[in-house]
Amino acid sequence: MTSRLFRIERSSLGKIVYLWLSPDVEFPRLPFGTPFRALVVSELHPEAARQSAICEWLAASGCRYLMAWGQEASSWDDSMDWAALERSGYVVDADGEDFIPTTWHDGESLAEVLHFASNHAKHPTLELEDLLVLRLAHSPDPEDVLGQGPR
């Protein structure tokens, strides 16, 4: 299996990159030059080791705000917290540039979460213009997800 990367430009929202990640594919290099927000759309819940590896990859790639929606959404909070702690040497600075706020969105529609990601996901120190939508699913179709977002 492979992953597919789609880049979508939207002037009012910055750059949105949609990535469908297959269960066992290696992580690609992301096309961000600055820190970014990430929304995990988890239609397939990975095993704990794979979820931890995804969070470590996101943190190392510049993710500085993580949101999760879908299966076991609350578990992404803990995985990213551990990845961020490991990267920082177990030093937490909530106003620092390496701090990674996390939210999970059980009981919300995907459209509501995309609205939150675009309008309310703020880092305490950094300006995060770009958004990665990381989809863990059988289907790679970005319109299933992005079609629900703000225009």
Rank of each mutant, 00 (worst) to 15 (best):
W20A: 15
M67S: 12
F99P: 08
L13E: 10
I16H: 03
G107K: 10
S88A: 13
L110W: 04
L21V: 08
L85W: 00
K15A: 14
F27I: 13
F99R: 09
D93R: 11
R10P: 00
T103Q: 12
L39M: 04
R37G: 10
A38Y: 01
L44C: 02
C55W: 04
W20V: 14
C55F: 02
V92N: 02
E97C: 12
P28D: 11
S118P: 00
K15N: 12
L44G: 02
D78H: 09
Y90P: 02
E97N: 13
V113H: 01
R64T: 12
P28G: 14
R50D: 02
S61E: 15
R64Q: 09
S74Y: 06
V25E: 13
L21F: 04
P31T: 08
H45A: 10
L19K: 05
V40R: 01
V25H: 10
Q51A: 12
S12Y: 01
A94P: 08
S52H: 11
P23C: 03
L39S: 08
S3E: 11
P28I: 14
R4F: 00
V40S: 03
A59S: 02
Q71T: 03
V113D: 05
K122V: 04
R7N: 13
A121P: 08
L85H: 00
L39P: 01
V92C: 09
V41G: 01
M67E: 05
Q71F: 03
T34A: 13
D95Y: 11
E97H: 14
A59V: 10
W69S: 09
L19C: 05
G33M: 10
A53T: 07
A83T: 08
S12A: 12
Q71D: 07
P101L: 06
K15E: 15
V25C: 15
T102E: 05
Y65W: 15
F32T: 12
P23A: 14
A94Y: 09
S75M: 06
L85S: 00
L39G: 04
E56R: 10
E72D: 15
W69T: 04
G96F: 06
R10L: 01
D24C: 05
D95H: 05
V41I: 07
V25G: 13
D78T: 14
L19I: 11
L19P: 02
E9K: 07
R50L: 04
E86V: 03
D106H: 08
K15R: 13
L114C: 12
K15S: 08
W82P: 00
G107T: 09
S74W: 13
A121M: 09
F36S: 06
D24M: 03
R7Y: 07
A49K: 09
G107V: 13
D93F: 09
S3G: 14
D81W: 05
A38C: 15
L5K: 10
F27N: 08
W104E: 00
P23E: 11
G14P: 00
R87I: 07
F116G: 01
